[in-house]
Nucleic acid binder design. Structure first.
Lengths: 202, 202, 202, 202
DNA sequence: GATGAATGAGTTTTCATTCAT
DNA sequence: TATGAATGAAAACTCATTCAT
């Protein structure tokens, strides 16, 4: 992980972890409400439960908070997906189940996903790269599910495209909620998308 | 359209149009490079070729510029699409041609699309609604193509979902360029997406 | 008068007079509502019925407008007072009648008087002097009434003080309206003030 | 008092008090010289001895400074008057002494009084109301002196009018200094005004 | 004479960051 | 380690004034 690269003047690693979790939690709440730019460091500090001075003991710049947040969101997604996807007995139905789990997760994490879509560009090159790599990993996980369940029936390119489509379809449920969630229930949305995917892999 | 709702202290409507086009052009260039928040009104003014005072003769607030930009992007997309889509002789191949045209357009307008994805949330409710409505219109156009070419073969819901998928697939070529354009040429991307769509409508 | 000292690029003296009257009328209306500082030259121009460019054909600076206004207010007071005060048959009752006339006038011109109290300090030294001289003239008129009617019964100092008191009592009916006009009708106010003045000159 | 209603981002109440006193002192100096509108917040900050950023830690808007100043002026007057007026043994001579004290105070605070006359209108409704109430209190104090010393000899209306006259006569020594102080010494001014008052209450 | 678009210096206000305690 | 007062660069926006048409 790259989080360690963010410097802190505090020595106690355990404390750093605790404080940063507070920061991430507070910041996500605020970013959901008003976005990164309209949130001030003072607000982040107070939402995190400590003073502005203390905040700056655990980060160097406001952008560090954004990085921490983006990284943490990916971390959460990764963890949850790892828990839910079961590739013990690979099969098309199990692949569908996995995708369904992913969609459920994306529904739960809508606001977080929107943060990623809107604020990643505010990261410096280096951090942005790291975050995009996490995103790439996510695609890799889906690709892996597909490959395992379809036993190489599809070309690598097709698998990659399908995986990306699935990932983005999960996102769009959230970032296009103003249109998708007006016309579909989550179940209907998933059913229809899955049907199309089934057609595509036949 | 809503552009007219942005007040200007200048009376000459023709001049307003010309100046606002300058503003939009300058602002898009800057927003592509550094985003809305990191672009200053002074930069917009000077990139547009006039003084800060003159800028403010044609807009009320910085947010007006963002609205002008978002609206103009949709306007461009709409115009171009209208030109290219030909529904005289509806057929599946013509539908594919239309989608291909749309993908080409999205390729050309990648940066603009990214602006929409990242900055629309900075608009006030009212303006955001207007912009999202333009987006809805875009989906409507695609739905129309599908319906015309498939002669009602698919349910309304399926059509809507398919149209949204196509629209977003056009966008993702741009906003996920760091992953898609590393693995696909534009042609390959379109070919593969179109194949999947063909499967889905069979 | 000093109004002539304000330069204009227009030659036609009659036109200058007409335009400046428009300016004064418009400006007084605006100054009453929002004060000198919060009124813009654009507003003055449009309230006067012409363009900003035309406004600047008849004045040099925004301060000129203020001077025009202050001078005009004094001019109006002077004119009206001259009309109303009749010193043909001097007597204490006639003096009281004159003071009463003055109070009525001050009641009518409350807002204008408030402008003087609040904005004269924004004039440049030169113009301020001129305006203060008009004010001095006003005191002179009242002194004259007193002297004529009391036939020199009071010392010059007493007359001067009494005149200043009367003048300011006229003003305070307006600039302390939030307290005076809550407790007194204009008639009651005048009656009581006149009674006190009568005591003082006995 | 209402000063507490002005928000500060600083927590230390004692420090707020100290800093605001600095602000008030600096601002009064500047307002005396150039008025509220021509004084910039930067000038206020530097005159107060700190940076513009620090100024804004103790106030919200420039208008807050004006309110602080107006409120403080009334506060000073109130304190000083309370000290000087002695109603232990009420009598006409003691009343005269009290008025004299008030006149002395007004002489000392001329510039401050002029600030009130010229700038109160720049306060928002709420703050203006508060300041005018302080002014009403001042009248109340004088009324109280009169009532106590004259044991109800005069009607309530007469007392109110007399008190207002006295208050304004105190002010006019300052705001009409260009005429009064050219013709009277402070002593002569007070003597003559007091004589007239004596006539009035007989 | 009249117009109104263009100008840019100047103003208020914000907020990330630092550092003494 | 934690605090929060101090800082000042930077930003949006205004408006008196000019001048070409």
């Amino acid at each position: 992980m790259k989080e360690e690269k963010i410097l802190s003047s505090v020595k106690d690693q355990q404390l750093i972890k605790v404080r940063r979790e507070q920061i991430i939690k507070g910041a996500i709440k605020l970013f959901k409400e008003k976005g990164f730019h309209k949130t001030t460091t003072r607000e982040i500090a107070s939402e995190s439960g400590f003073s502005i001075g203390t905040l700056y003991e655990y980060i160097r710049t406001k952008e560090d908070v954004l990085f921490l947040v983006c990284d943490s969101i990916h971390e959460q997604v990764r963890e949850r997906i790892a828990q839910e996807i079961d590739l013990e007995s690979p099969s098309v139905p199990n692949m569908m189940k996995a995708i369904r789990s992913y969609f459920y997760l994306m529904d739960e994490m809508q606001d977080e996903i929107v943060i990623l879509y809107q604020e990643v560009k505010s990261l410096k090159k280096e951090s942005r790269k790291h975050v995009l790599n996490s995103e790439r990993d996510m695609v890799g996980i889906i690709e892996n599910v597909i490959n395992t369940c379809l036993e190489g029936k599809l070309s690598a390119q097709k698998v990659s495209l399908l995986a990306n489509n699935i990932v983005v379809q999960g996102h769009m449920w959230g970032f296009r909620r103003w249109i998708m969630q007006k016309q579909f229930t989550l179940e209907a949305y998933m059913d229809e998308q899955l049907k199309m995917i089934e057609h595509a892999i036949k």
